[in-house]
Design a binder for these strands. Structure first.
Lengths: 234, 234, 234, 234
DNA sequence: GATGAATGAGGGTTCATTCAT
DNA sequence: AATGAATGAACCCTCATTCAT
C-alpha cells in the first residue's frame, strides 16, 4: 500500500510484533467476551487481561464493535476451514455428512459460548450482513456437501437442497445446544440418528434392506436405549 | 376496613383499567424490545409509546428486567397452549407432528424477532432458569407428542426420545429462521421433508413400500424441484 | 375559628377520630424514621405501617417535612415536660441536677435514635429555627435549674451560667451516646462523677482556699461576667 | 515492561498531577458537602466546582460514598495529629488538658459544619465502623492524656477514665457547638471553667476532706472500679 | 506506538406529591 | 375523608472513546 517499502527484515519484525499483539488482543477479547457477553464485557477488561492500556486496544481496532467483528470473523473462518477439512477424503456422502456432524457437534461443545455470542451480537445491528455472511460461509460447507452428493448420484435428485441442509444443520445445532446444557459429551446417538435418518430419507436408490442392515449395526454400536425424557429433558 | 366484596362494578372498573394498562405496557414493550433488543430499548421508549410517564412503568414492573421477563413469560405460555391445541385431535402420530410443525413454523414466521429476543436475553443472566423453564415447557409439547406416539406403538420403541425430539425441533427452528430471513412463507416443503424423514426413520413397522408410496404423494403435492443453492442460499 | 359550630357531640367524635389517626401516623412515622433516617424512610412506608394509602398521610400533614417536624415537636415537648417534672420537688440544687441528669440519661438510652434523627434532620435546612427552638426549650430547663440554684445561693454567683450549663449538658449528652453505643445501662458512675464535679466546682462556699485562689486568678484572667441566660440562651 | 525506576521527573510529574487533582477533588467536595450535606450535595456539584467532568470524580473515587469517607478520613486523621501535637510538651496534666481543650474548641469553631457532616453521615450505614473508628482515634488522644496523668499520679487513681473523658469531651463538644452558633470566638471562659472543674474533681490530693468524704460515699455507692480504657474505649 | 486520565452523554430507578374517583 | 395510580424531576454511575504526553 505504500510505495517505499522499508527494509524487509525490520519490516517483518515490526509486522510480526504487530500481528502478535493483535492476536493477543483477539485472544484476550475472546475469553472476556465469552464470559460476559458483548454488553457486559468492557474494553478495559480486555486491555487489563493482557496488561496494556485501554488506549492501546484502539491502536489495533477502531471500535469495540470492530474488535468483536474481528473476533467473530477469525472464529467463523477457522471453523469453516475445519469443517471443510473434516469432509475431505471421505468416500461417500454419508461418511462426509457424518464427519461434518461430528465436527460440528465437537465445535458446539468446545465453543458454545462463542456461538451464543454470535447469535446475541447479531440482532439489532445494521451491519449484520457482514457477520451473517460469515455464518453463511460456514453453512455453505453443508450445502456443498449435499450438492456434491447429489452430483455423484448418492442423494435423491428430487430433494430440495436447502430444505435438507436446514434440516441437517438445524438438527445438529439444537442437539449441540442440548448436549452442551446437559454437559453430555456423547455425540454418537445424535450423529447416528441423524445420519440414519438422512440415509433413509435422502439416500438415492431406496432404503429397504440395506437400511435395515445398517440400522442394526448402528444400534449395536451405540446401544440405543429406550429413554423417555420427562419435563426436565431439555 | 373493607368488606370482602365491595361493589363489583366500581371495583372491577379500577382493576380493569389497571389490567388494561398492564397489557398496554406489555404490548408496547414487545414492540419496542423486538425492534431494538433488550439493551438498546429504553424504558422511556416504552413509556413514550403508550403516552405515560416513565415512572408509570415502574408502578407495574419493578425493573426493566422484570418487564422483559413478564413479556417472555406471557409469550411462551401462549405459544405452549397454541402448540398443545395444534396437536390435539389428530388421529396418528405423524398427523400430530405435522400439525406441530405447521404451528411452529407459523410461529417462527410471525414471531421471529421475539424468539430471537428470548435467545439474546437469556445468556449471561443468573435467573435464566425461569426463562429457560418457559422454553422447556414449550419443548415439552414435542416430547409428549413423541412419547404418546411411542406408547401407541406408532413410533419405534428403540428410539431415544430426546434425540428424535432435538432433531425434529432443531430442524424446525433453523428452517423457520431461514424461511424468515428469506421472507418465504411457504412452509410446505420443509414440513413435508421433515415428516417424511421422521416417518422413514422412526416410524414403527419398517419403511419400504409404504414409504415410497408416501414419498410419491408428497412429491406430487409439493412439486419438489431440484434446486442447488449457491453461496447466497441462506 | 368557624362561627357556626357543628353539633358538639358529632364534632368531638369526628375530631377524636382525626386526632387518633394523626397520632397513629405520628407514631408509625416515629418507628419508621428512627429506623431508617429521614432520607431513607419513605412516606409510603409510614402509610403502609398503619394500613392507609399514601395520599391519606397528606390529608394530615402537608409534606414529609412537616410530618417530621410534627414528630420532633411532640417529642421535644414531651421530654421537656418530663425534665421539668424531674427537677420538681427536690430540696437543693444538686439533688435537682442529679434528677435532671438521671432523666436525661434515661432519655438518651430510650430515645437515642430519635435524638440522632433530630441532629441529622437539622442541618442544611433553612427552617431549622423551629426545630432548634424545640431543643432550646429543653435545654432551658437546665438553664432554669442553674439559675434557681444561683438565686437561692446554692451555686457560686461568679459562674457564668451558660458555661456551666454547656458543661453539664454536653457531658451528659456525650456520656449518653457512649452508654448507648456500649449498650451499658448503668448511668450511676456518670451521674455521680458529674454531680460531684459540679458540687466541687460550682457549689457555693464549698471549695478550699487553694481552689478559690486559683479561681480568683482565672476570673481575673478571663473576666467572667455573671450572665443569666433567658430563653434565647442557646 | 517498565524498569523498576523510570525517569523520576517524568513519572513524578504525572503522579503529582494525579495527587494534586485528588486533593482538589477532596477539597472541593469538602466545601460542597459542608454546605449542603451528604444527600443534597451532588457529585456533579463537586465536579463543577473544580471544572472537571462528572466522570472524572469517579476516576478517583469509586462512589459518592467513598468520596465522603476519604474526606472524613483525612479530616479526622489530620485533627488527631493536631490534637496529639497540642498536648505534647506540656509539663502537667492540666496544662495538657487545657491545650487539648483549646485545640478542640478552635477546631469546632473552624470546622463545625464538618463535624456535623460526620455525625450526619454516620447513622444508618452499615460500614459506620470505619468512620466511627476515625472518631475513636481522635477521642483516644483524650483517653491517653487522662491515662498519662493517672500514671504520673497527677490524677486521682479512683476515677474511671472513660467517665472523665466523656465528661471532658462532651462538655467541650457541646460548648463548641454553642460558641459556634453564637458566633462567639472567645473560648477562654469555657476552657477555664472546664479545667478548674477537672482540677477540683479529678486532681490528685487537692480536695479538702469534705470532698473526700463525699467521694468516699459515692465510691461505696457506685463501686467505682479503676478502669483504664485502651484504644477501643469508645 | 503506548499510555491512562479525562470526557460526558445516557439510562435505570426513586419517591414526594397530586388529583380524579 | 380516603384512595392509589400517575407523575417527572433528579441523580448516581458506566464506559467507549479521545488525545496530550
Amino acid at each position: 500500500m505504500s510505495l517505499d517499502d522499508p527494509p524487509p527484515t525490520a519490516r517483518s519484525t515490526r509486522r510480526q510484533r504487530v500481528e502478535e499483539k493483535e492476536r493477543a488482543i483477539l485472544s484476550a477479547a475472546r475469553r472476556i467476551f465469552e464470559g460476559k457477553g458483548y454488553v457486559s464485557a468492557r474494553v478495559a477488561d480486555v486491555a487489563a487481561a493482557i496488561g496494556v492500556a485501554e488506549g492501546t486496544i484502539y491502536t489495533y481496532f477502531p471500535t469495540k464493535d470492530a474488535l468483536v467483528r474481528a473476533m467473530l470473523e477469525s472464529f467463523w473462518e477457522g471453523i469453516t476451514a475445519e469443517a471443510r477439512a473434516a469432509v475431505d477424503g471421505h468416500p461417500d456422502i454419508f461418511a462426509r455428512l457424518e464427519a461434518l456432524a461430528k465436527s460440528h457437534l465437537a465445535l458446539c461443545i468446545r465453543n458454545w459460548s462463542f456461538l451464543e455470542l454470535t447469535l446475541r451480537f447479531l440482532p439489532g445491528r445494521s451491519q449484520d450482513a457482514q457477520t451473517r455472511s460469515l455464518m453463511r460461509d460456514y453453512v455453505a460447507v453443508f450445502d456443498e456437501t449435499f450438492a456434491t452428493g447429489q452430483d455423484k448420484g448418492e442423494l435423491m435428485e428430487e430433494a430440495e437442497l436447502w430444505v435438507a441442509r436446514d434440516q441437517f444443520y438445524g438438527a445438529l445445532e439444537y442437539s449441540g445446544r442440548t448436549l452442551m446444557l446437559r454437559g453430555n459429551p456423547d455425540t454418537a446417538p445424535v450423529i447416528n440418528a441423524l445420519i440414519s435418518s438422512f440415509r433413509a430419507t435422502y439416500g438415492a436408490g431406496g432404503q429397504p434392506k440395506a437400511l435395515e442392515g445398517r440400522l442394526a449395526k448402528l444400534e449395536a454400536k451405540s446401544a440405543i436405549r429406550v429413554v423417555r425424557p420427562g419435563k426436565r429433558a431439555l
